[in-house]
């Protein structure tokens, strides 16, 4: 990836993130967050992670915005309670220190696509070489997700299912209970 383009994307991301925090109307923050996700999706695509890119485009830029709008409609559009100045004195240095630590630590990361990186030394070569002869699957990512590491994928699916079921069970009860209370008051 061209570093000028990289830099441009990062600047856009920071501006969008700041803008989303700055607007007080949350309905206005939703499209800003969607745009943020879209830029992230483009960056994933530029890193040749196409599958992650289009999950981010569909889910982050599309559906999440819709779910946010649904939630805001049933609560309030205003983002109340701005941070008091006293808290800012504590929070800002903390954030600064954290960002500084991250930038310092990023110096120790291996280069993008470096074949000698520690994460490419142990099992990756086996997966990459074994994918076609062992599973007839040219897409190594699929072979890793659905075969070599399928237990992890099962865990992910169970987490998604459990989270979804929990949300459905919590919210599904709401209107019914309200109706019952209403019925109790009239009789």
């Amino acid at each position: 990836m061209i570093w000028q383009l990289d830099l441009l994307f990062f600047v856009i991301l920071v501006v969008l993130a700041a803008l989303a925090l700055w607007v007080r109307n949350m309905m206005a923050a939703v499209p800003i967050l969607s745009a943020f996700s879209l830029v992230v999706a483009v960056m994933f695509a530029a890193l040749s992670a196409v599958d992650v890119a289009f999950v981010e485009a569909v889910l982050g830029a599309g559906l999440t915005g819709l779910l946010f709008i649904l939630l805001i409609r049933s609560t309030s559009e205003r983002a109340d309670a701005p941070t008091p100045p006293r808290h800012r004195l504590v929070v800002l240095p903390l954030i600064g220190a954290f960002v500084g630590l991250m930038i310092y630590a990023s110096g120790g990361l291996p280069d993008k696509g470096d074949p000698m990186a520690p994460s490419h030394q142990r099992v990756s070569p086996d997966y990459i070489e074994g994918s076609v002869p062992e599973t007839l699957t040219p897409n190594v990512v699929t072979a890793v997700l659905a075969d070599y590491r399928s237990l992890d994928t099962l865990g992910e699916v169970v987490v998604i299912f459990t989270a979804g079921t929990a949300v459905v069970m919590i919210l599904f009860e709401r209107p019914r209970r309200r109706r019952r209370e209403h019925g109790g008051a009239t009789t």
């Binding site: 599958d51 289009f54 569909v58 559906l63 007839l136 897409n139 699929t142 659905a146």
Partner: peptide
């Protein structure tokens, strides 16, 4: 098996 994606991306 051949292209990017799979169950997660397609399901979404």
């Amino acid at each position: 098996h051949y292209g990017p994606g799979g169950g997660f991306a397609g399901g979404i």
